[in-house]
């Protein structure tokens, strides 16, 4: 059994927790969150084991990197969930974690060879900061999507639930699981904290934390890259695309602070930023790996 096979355990367990959420009749959320936490612990153990294998140098294969990224995302999601008591984030964010896990499992293994001996701490800082920033923006993306959908509902005044009938016991026991799924789903629509202001606040919080992390990560990256290629002046594609991404978030932050931009437009910008992040990751890891010091 190669190490990569362990990645499959959290995939199965996360998927299982959704099955529990849909099928279980009494307190589905409690069982769901218990399974999520449990899986997260396992995921953490795998991350530690994986990093340990490479002596925590962060010169690790790309699949482990993505696995590590999914772990950071899950950590942030759980922290936000606990901090803001917004149960639903876990439900909406975990699929992205699962997707990241699947990518890490199926991604072609690409070893990172340190072309140049760099300061190991700088590399670790670069990777952790960038991954944290990206994960925060991923969460911001999910929150923005929820915001836009929720705002649409409020503007169009359709499908607005104001009575919590999710707690009502279903009278017929043989009503099938689809019904149960819908009931549980409605329950989360009504969950505490499912409001525009909180969604926007969390989005802003992601931006406030993610932007410095991303900025610092990019600065360190540029420094590392210049050390790698012995020149600061030569502009590499990875730098251009990173700067575009950074610029989007910089504009967003500026507008928020200076003009109080919030709501729909902020959510849209967040989504645009996230698309740029995906592009950056694809660019840097697969299209021009050599510019990223990968081989």
């Amino acid at each position: 059994m190669i190490f990569k096979d362990y990645y499959f355990i959290p995939i199965i367990l996360f998927s299982l927790s959704y099955a529990v959420l849909y099928i279980k009749k009494n307190n589905p959320y409690n069982s769901f969150i218990f399974l999520i936490y449990f899986t997260f612990i396992i995921q953490s153990l795998i991350v530690i084991a994986g990093l340990n294998k490479y002596h925590f140098t962060m010169i690790i294969p790309i699949d482990l990197m993505i696995f590590f990224n999914s772990w950071i995302l899950m950590l942030i999601v759980i922290l936000f969930e606990l901090l803001y008591k917004a149960k639903y984030i876990v439900i909406y964010a975990t699929p992205i974690v699962i997707a990241a896990l699947l990518i890490s499992y199926f991604a072609p293994s690409m070893d990172i060879n340190a072309i140049l001996k760099v300061d190991s701490w700088l590399l670790i800082a670069h990777i952790v900061l960038i991954l944290t920033g990206d994960s925060l923006f991923t969460l911001a993306f999910i929150l923005s999507l929820i915001y836009i959908l929720q705002e649409r509902k409020l503007k169009l005044k359709k499908n607005l639930k104001i009575i919590n009938d999710g707690n009502k016991n279903s009278s017929g026991k043989n009503e099938g699981r689809l019904f149960n799924f819908r009931r549980n789903f409605n329950y989360f629509n009504l969950g505490k904290g499912y409001n525009l202001e909180l969604l926007d606040n969390m989005n802003y919080q992601c931006l406030k934390l993610g932007f410095p992390a991303l900025t610092a990560g990019i600065v360190i990256g540029i420094y590392l890259s210049s050390a790698l290629f012995k020149s600061v002046s030569s502009v590499k594609p990875i730098e251009i695309i990173s700067l575009i991404t950074w610029l989007i978030y910089a504009i967003l932050l500026h507008e928020r602070v200076a003009k109080g931009l919030r709501g729909n437009k902020a959510a849209m910008l967040s989504i645009a930023g996230f698309i740029m992040i995906i592009l950056t990751v694809g660019f840097s890891l697969y299209l021009f790996p050599e510019f990223h010091g990968l081989k």
């Binding site: 104001i162 409001n195 202001e197 606040n201």
Partner: peptide, 18 residues
């Protein structure tokens, strides 16, 4: 407790956090 005022409060809770 279903009334216009109840609905108004519930709607407000969908917009405002606190």
């Amino acid at each position: 407790p279903v009334s216009v005022s109840y609905a108004a409060v519930e709607l407000a809770k969908k917009i405002f956090n606190d």
